[in-house]
Structure formats: C-alpha cells, structure tokens
C-alpha cells in the first residue's frame, strides 16, 4: 500500500503532538478492491471469459431465474456458475442438478458481500479454459454487494414483485450500478400493489441506462429477453 503522498512527494507525513504521533493515510478503503477488480477484469478479458455479477434480495428468485436462463444458453455458450452464500451449498447443488453445468459454492464466512479477491479465489476453482461466461450469484442483499466491485463485466439485479416498486428509491446505489434490472414474479402481480411503470420510472431516476426486463422465472415467461441480452453482451465483449 502507498502511504499518503503529499505534494513534496515525501512518503509519509508525520506530525507530532504531545501524546501521539500521527501518520497520515488519506486512503479510501475501497481503493485496494477497485484495483483487484480491474486486474481480475483484465485477466478474464485475456482468457475470453465474461463475468456477470447477479444480485438481489434474498428470496427474489435468483436461482430459479438462473436455471431458466442457463436452459436457454447452455447450447450456445459454455458457462459455469459460482454461488456465494454465507453458508450451505443448496443453491450450487440445485443448479448442478437442474442444468448439469459446473457450479461451485463459495462461503463468505459471515460477510454480507463478495469482493474482487474472494471472486478471484472462487474462480481459481473453476476450469476457466474454454468457458465463455461465468455467472456469479452474489449474496442476497441490496446494500453491501453494490459497494464492492467484483471484477464483473456487467452487473444485473433481480427485483421481485412482492418486494414493492419503491425499492429503487430505498436502495439507490444498487440500482445505479446495474446494467439490467429483472423484475421477477410477474405472475403474482394481481395480488400486490406493485406498479411496473412506477418501478421502471424509479429505476431510471437512479440509472437512465438500465434496461428493465419483466419475467416470471417459474413459467419462464420473459426469461428469453434476459438470456438474449446476456448472449449479446458476451459476444460483443469477446469481439472487443
């Protein structure tokens, strides 16, 4: 780590008071992670692997959405899934059983998010050679994962109808960093006061470029739009 560099380019700035010596640092705690994330992105680029960071609240239907998406993509792209949870391996098992694609489980050891270093360590256990796409299913949480760049090429999040259309107002950072917002559980719309148009409006207040895709993961309705977006992004990125 670089210790604070001032204009005279002295390495460490010390000032003395009676009781304590002060060492000036002036460093964002996100700085190391951002460097790690950029390095990981560059490494994945060399290997031709696209990393998608998928985020959501717990229970929004991430795993079911993934299974449906993988079903549509597995003949077109070579892919693997990394599941991040605080504990258990139920999600990784479910994905593997339902789709047959390689799926590994990461445990965050109580941490509420995954950072770039943890992502890299997880990827060490994935046979990356020949893969086009790795989908990282981040810890179910709308706060912390938004603050830590994982090294992904694109970020997507799933918001489900029962959670309410005002989520973009409550968790602005999450919505501002996502390229795609998938609205899941559209089949239960009649039972909730969820206004899809308002939701779209709130998402665009945070991020005018975000694409909003309504789906129903249970029936598969709309999932093809998300799968197509992902396929196009992977192809485009590989050509760059």
């Amino acid at each position: 780590m670089r210790i604070f560099e001032d204009q005279n380019n002295t390495k460490t700035k010390l000032s003395m008071t009676d009781e304590v010596k002060v060492i000036e640092i002036k460093k964002s705690i996100f700085e190391d992670n951002e460097k790690d994330a950029d390095a990981l992105r560059a490494e994945l680029k060399r290997k031709g692997v696209f990393l998608l960071n998928l985020m959501s609240s717990p229970g929004s239907g991430k795993t079911t959405t993934l299974i449906q998406t993988i079903g549509l993509l597995k003949d077109k792209l070579r892919l693997a899934v990394m599941e991040a949870d605080i504990d258990s391996d139920v999600d990784a098992r479910k994905i593997k059983e339902a789709t047959g694609i390689p799926s590994i489980q990461l445990h965050t050891g109580g941490m509420c998010h995954l950072d770039a270093e943890m992502t890299r360590q997880g990827l060490d256990h994935v046979a990356l050679d020949g893969l086009d796409l790795v989908i990282l299913e981040n810890v179910g949480n709308l706060v912390c994962p938004a603050e830590f760049d994982t090294g992904s090429v694109k970020n997507a999040m799933i918001l489900s109808v029962p959670e309410g259309h005002d989520k973009p107002l409550k968790y602005p950072l999450m919505f501002s960093i996502c390229d795609v917002v998938v609205i899941n559980k559209m089949d239960v719309l009649p039972y909730f006061d969820f206004d899809p148009e308002k939701c779209k409006e709130y998402v665009h207040m945070r991020n005018p470029k975000a694409q909003v895709i309504p789906i129903c993961a249970k029936t598969g309705e709309g999932v093809e739009v998300f799968a197509q977006w992902l396929e196009d992004e992977v192809k485009q990125w590989k050509q760059q």
Binding site: E19, K21, I23, S28
Partner: peptide, 12 residues
C-alpha cells in the same frame, strides 16, 4: 460518499 482512513495515531 467517502469511506477513507484519514490518519492513524501511534503512542509517542
């Protein structure tokens, strides 16, 4: 939006 370490204090 800052979350930064400004300085550390060391006993003299």
């Amino acid at each position: 939006n800052e979350v930064e370490i400004k300085e550390i204090e060391v006993p003299n």
